[in-house]
Write a protein that binds this DNA or RNA. Structure first.
Lengths: 195, 195
DNA sequence: CAAAGCATGTAAATAGTTACATGATTTA
DNA sequence: TAAATCATGTAACTATTTACATGCTTTG
């Protein structure tokens, strides 16, 4: 009953390390490019902060999974990275690894408020649901405007799964918006809104 | 364009503080009871680790939002808490606060692997999708066996929103499982599995 | 060429997790 | 009464975020 999610020995990549490695495999070269590309793709199911990106680049290079070369412009440092053969192999192993799974973690302040909405009146609760629906509608717009086009570019370059996953994100928010509509109707049925 | 998510001044509760406060409002008395109840309810959209619970209890009591009394048994310490009037008011303000919203954060190692699945062959990718579907099916079983019954108990005691939110969780995993089926079919259409 | 914005990276602070320590209570 | 399990809490560690520092590049 081994409960270890991600062993700290470096034979297996951590998820964050793999995310950085994978972004390079998809064509991002510098830490900055990784950050930008991640904002348009993995961001919605695996956020990466700047320090994590640079820390992982350092560690991955030390392990020989990526090779960096200096591309500084003047005083401004810059490093460009590519995968080594070991890096490609490590990424494939990580994707395949049947032991390498884990729970989906969700963290949503709006659902949290809704959970406790019995302490306020129905109008306030309905306001929360409206807020939650609006948030998903804005997310849908972001997917259509930014994330799906970026995934389409990856698809044109031969990588199809970013598109599948982006589509998942879009449909997830459609599901949430539709759910908000349904609870709101349930609430209205329970206690009709006084017009 | 104030980008501050949760101001550190204590006129507004942090989400985690509110989660603890809310669990007490719903009837949990000790840190331990909060932890147990949280595992059966808010866990799936707002996880709470033990140290966070006890840290928040201390802070909430210092602010006068909860009142604690000693209920030790022998050498073993134990404290039972109830909301003060200020605590009730703070919880209502937090639930209502229109500025108190934030992004839904998702973190899913399985989606992350799927995102990079172009580096492996189709059978390996299909295995990942199968893994993801199975995970949601197990989650569905947990909802049916534990989370929905707990929410029903809360409903019997007069709190209906836990039930709505639990239902959201269940339907979310139904959505995910159905999505897995659909991508798998898309993949099979693209490259029929060699039987 | 000055100002604005883009590109690159890091330090410091915060939040969250893992693992454990230990006393009470139940059960064999 | 010994062993197992339940209940309660904490110390130490790790991950993540916020905010910033700074140098290039473009544009008015």
């Amino acid at each position: 009953m081994s409960a270890i999610a991600v062993p700290p020995d470096r034979s297996t990549l951590s998820n964050t390390a793999a995310a950085v490695l994978g972004m390079i495999a998809l064509g991002a070269r510098s830490g900055y490019e990784i950050r930008r590309a991640a904002e348009l793709s993995v961001r919605f199911f695996w956020a990466l902060g700047p320090p994590q990106v640079y820390a992982q680049l350092k560690a991955l290079e030390a392990e020989g999974l990526i090779a960096g070369r200096d591309e500084a412009r003047g005083e401004r440092p810059r490093r460009h990275f590519t995968l080594t053969d070991e890096g490609h192999q490590a990424l494939r192993s990580w994707v395949t690894d049947p032991a390498g799974t884990g729970a989906m973690e969700l963290r949503d302040p709006e659902l949290l408020r809704l959970f406790f909405a019995d302490v306020v009146d129905h109008d306030a609760a309905r306001a929360r649901i409206g807020q939650m629906r609006r948030r998903s509608q804005e997310a849908l717009a972001t997917f259509d405007r930014e994330i799906l086009p970026a995934a389409a570019r990856a698809g044109a370059a031969g990588s199809h799964f970013p598109g599948h996953v982006a589509q998942f994100g879009r449909e997830l928010h459609e599901f949430i918006a539709a759910w908000c509509d349904r609870v709101e109707q349930t609430l209205d049925a329970d206690e009709p809104r006084r017009s």
